[in-house]
Design a protein around this nucleic acid. Sequence first.
DNA 1: ACGATGATTGTTCGC
DNA 2: GCGAACAATCATCGT
Length: 147
Amino acid sequence: MAKDMASHGRMVLRVRPTERTKRSASLSIVDEEEKRPKSVKKPKTKQKKKSGKFDAKKPKKPPTAFFFFLEDFRKEFQEKNPGVKSMRDVGKACGEKWKTMTYEEKVQYYDVATEKRAEFDRAMAEYIKRKESGEDQETDEDSEFDG
DNA sequence: ACGATGATTGTTCGC
DNA sequence: GCGAACAATCATCGT
């Protein structure tokens, strides 16, 4: 499958079958956990707001491989942990497992996500195109018809 | 009852 | 290249 990934050159898939060629550089331990005041202070998390209005603008971002894994993991996790409460717990476990997962195991999720991005790419292309064309160009399609 | 939050990693955009 | 924001999800807290 000689997909013209390079064509996009965007990011394609950062999956490298090569093991880590880099050996840890324990030359100097910087701040592993120490916080880096490099950036401004911003809310730990600020996502998900409420769709007061419909996102008539940019297309929503497709779920990442991690999320796909989450879906599967969730079900499995719940079976093993019927006492689990919600994603927060699952997510934690998922994240840890995700790191333990190998490239081959993750690749199957990456692959799925990759396809999703392809679809997203289209929506994005249109979005950008429309944006350049005229963001004002709003159409009330879903608007009432019978006015 | 509804709103926002928290926790996970990945991806993408903007400059 | 980095920074910032956001994607799914839902129990749970707050009002």
